[in-house]
Amino acid sequence: MSYPRRRSRAGASAGVLLASVAALFSLGELQAESAAAAPSPSGQTHAAAGVDAAVQHPSTTRVTAAVLSLDGGSGKPLLNGKDVSYDTASIVKVDILATLLLQAQDAGRPLTAKERALAEPMIRNSDNAATNALWREIGGAPGLEAANKRLGLTSTKGGPGPKWGLTQTTASDQIRLLLCVFDGATTSKTDSPLNKDSRAYIQDLMTRVASDQAWGVSAASGPDHALKNGWLQRTASGLWDVNSVGRVTVDGHRYLVAVLSDGSPSMNDGISVVERAARQAVAATTRT
């Protein structure tokens, strides 16, 4: 499967105003890389990239951003926008890998060479075929949800059947997942169920995503960042889900950032929405 190179965002209009920092909350919490009209390997049917404008509905873009400082502070994330459910698209791949690693830990073993050969392209290149295989291995939605109970995610529901990209999640749940992954890099431990080696493995892959994947929350960061992005064009509306999660560094300070969006008229518009939201949310956090 081929993956699209990042396209220019010049002239993209997001049409979104972020809400003011709305709340503090307690911690506890398909990517359409192929624009083919036929069903993807994940079982999700995608509209063609050149979908006729007449088919597209007026943009009703939503966006939610959550930011947590890793360097002190209240230990609670700041939330911009409503903490409602969104399709994960391919950000769920971090959750799938965390589930796989938890299952391997329970079995008292490291990942096999085959599992690593699937996990690396799943995170670094957002490979869908590798994700399909690992989704089946972890037991699909039931396996994901069992792991998420241990990871502290409270509002994430696995996608139906093979459609892992239609997993539903919230920005606050994504911060909870990231905190489990980056535990050990924080001033206050969260007792992540992922052991040190498992956390280090996910972190390493997220810091080495392919160059065409390096957009999203990294727009709010200096050169030191780790991320996973997802994008999905919904067939019924022709509109786009675009999401980005990860760790960013600003002036030597580290933050976990999750930005979820849907309803953008194009992928480029969605990227612009996500990157603007990430910059604004991190800036708001640095002022608190």
Score class of each variant (00 low, 15 high):
residue 2 S to W: 06
residue 10 A to R: 15
residue 13 S to N: 13
residue 17 L to D: 15
residue 27 L to K: 15
residue 33 E to G: 15
residue 34 S to K: 09
residue 39 P to E: 11
residue 48 A to E: 10
residue 49 A to M: 08
residue 50 G to I: 01
residue 66 A to R: 05
residue 67 V to T: 07
residue 70 L to P: 15
residue 71 D to P: 13
residue 79 L to P: 09
residue 82 K to N: 14
residue 84 V to Q: 14
residue 94 V to N: 07
residue 96 I to H: 07
residue 96 I to S: 05
residue 98 A to H: 05
residue 98 A to I: 07
residue 101 L to P: 10
residue 102 L to R: 10
residue 103 Q to W: 09
residue 105 Q to E: 15
residue 109 R to Q: 14
residue 111 L to D: 05
residue 115 E to Q: 14
residue 115 E to C: 06
residue 122 M to L: 11
residue 125 N to V: 03
residue 126 S to A: 05
residue 127 D to V: 04
residue 127 D to N: 15
residue 131 T to E: 01
residue 132 N to F: 00
residue 153 L to E: 07
residue 154 T to I: 03
residue 156 T to W: 00
residue 165 G to S: 06
residue 165 G to Y: 00
residue 171 A to H: 02
residue 172 S to Y: 00
residue 184 G to W: 02
residue 184 G to M: 03
residue 195 N to L: 02
residue 195 N to P: 06
residue 198 S to A: 15
residue 205 L to T: 07
residue 209 V to L: 10
residue 209 V to Y: 02
residue 213 Q to R: 13
residue 214 A to C: 09
residue 219 A to P: 11
residue 221 S to T: 11
residue 226 A to N: 08
residue 230 G to H: 09
residue 236 A to H: 11
residue 237 S to M: 06
residue 239 L to V: 07
residue 239 L to N: 02
residue 239 L to M: 11
residue 240 W to K: 01
residue 244 S to Q: 07
residue 249 T to L: 03
residue 256 L to I: 04
residue 259 V to M: 12
residue 260 L to G: 03
residue 263 G to A: 05
residue 265 P to G: 07
residue 272 S to K: 14
residue 275 E to D: 07
residue 279 R to D: 05
residue 285 T to S: 12
residue 285 T to C: 12
